[in-house]
């Protein structure tokens, strides 16, 4: 923005010899500039900035969206006090953290390994890339739904395969309190590992072959080449993938709702699922607005710190 303004200034100054005639004939550069960016600004204000501010305003009230006639009272920080004092909220945040951390851990591990294997350019690697990428192209709700069938204790293929290797008996990935948090991690990993893999693959492809050749001549073992060349040069790409996945999984909703609906109990009730319940089932609009604000500040703050860190890594 600042830069384009500067250029506009500059070119207008360059036009000075043409004098007043140039300006009289049409719009000034600055006017043209405004004309072009105004629609975008208006849209941004209307569908992003205004709702955000409105949400923050509501979070200080006792507003309930299903009772429009009710008097709206200004209650200060009461919603926030209730939220932060509630043990349940910490539970939901813990569930979310468990889900975000472990799903990213597995996706990075498997995604990077797959990318590394595919980058060896063996025969048919293009075919396998396409096959591996398929899950990512499905709708999360569809994925959630069909995995409920795969996880069926009696007829599901997942239990069948597990029982083929170890005698686990009848168990329910979805119904079991201990297993359910891992179930959502497994499905999310299945679905989004390809995304991490693609980004890692792009990173690996960006490393020119002659750097490895130089390292080889310099006497670096494959192991040392991996740690001193491959990893540092893919790291910025990998960190970007982690950022995308973290933000996405922090607000994960559809797939988990289809898969477990937050159950059993509230073992897979992510913050976003709880938020939807409070807002549109219990209709505690003010309260859930406060919750949304807290989540927003958390993600926004964490992402900002992370991006700073990412830039540091890139500059290194």
């Amino acid at each position: 923005m600042a830069e384009s303004t500067l250029t506009a200034e500059g070119s207008r100054r360059a036009q000075v010899p043409v004098g007043s005639r140039g300006r009289a004939r049409g719009l000034s550069d600055r006017a043209v500039l405004l004309l072009f960016i105004t629609p975008t600004l208006v849209l941004l204000l209307a569908i992003n900035i205004f709702p955000l501010i409105w949400n923050i305003v509501l979070s200080f009230t006792n507003y309930r969206a299903n009772q429009p006639g009710r008097e709206i009272k200004w209650i200060g920080l009461r919603n926030y006090e209730r939220l932060l004092g509630s043990e349940d909220i910490w539970g939901y945040l813990q569930v979310t953290a468990h889900f975000v951390c472990w799903s990213i851990f597995f996706q990075v591990l498997i995604g990077f390994s797959l990318a590394w294997l595919l980058n060896r350019q063996f025969r048919g690697h293009a075919f396998w890339t396409t096959v591996i990428v398929l899950p990512m192209m499905l709708s999360p709700a569809v994925v959630g739904t069909f995995w409920t069938y795969l996880f069926q204790p009696q007829s599901g293929i997942f239990n069948y395969i597990v029982n083929f290797f170890i005698d686990a008996g009848d168990f329910s990935m979805i119904g079991d309190v201990a297993l359910a948090p891992w179930t959502i991690v497994i499905v999310d990993t299945w679905m989004w590992t390809p995304f991490v893999m693609l980004i890692c693959l792009a990173g690996l492809r960006s490393i020119p072959e002659y750097i490895y050749e130089a390292a080889e001549v310099d006497g670096a073992s494959p192991w040392r080449q991996f740690w001193t060349i491959t990893v540092p040069m893919v790291l910025p790409f990998l960190m970007l993938a982690v950022l995308f996945r973290a933000i996405e999984n922090f607000k994960m909703f559809d797939m988990v709702v289809e898969l477990t609906s937050g159950g059993p109990g509230s073992t897979t009730e992510l913050a976003s699922i709880n938020l939807k319940r409070e807002a549109f089932e219990s209709w505690k609009t003010g309260y859930s607005a406060a919750f949304a604000t807290i989540l927003f500040v958390t993600v926004f703050g964490a992402a900002n710190i992370y991006v700073k860190f990412l830039n540091q890594v890139k500059k290194r």
């Binding site: 020119p208 002659y210 750097i211 050749e213 130089a214 390292a215 080889e216 001549v217 310099d218 006497g219 670096a220 073992s221 001193t228 060349i229 540092p232 040069m233 290194r316």
Partner: peptide, 19 residues
């Protein structure tokens, strides 16, 4: 393998370690 030959190579495209 190249490492075992113990030669030093100056590449046409420099081939520095960019990071």
């Amino acid at each position: 393998a190249p490492a075992a030959r113990d030669v030093a190579f100056v590449f046409q495209q420099y081939a520095l370690y960019p990071h």
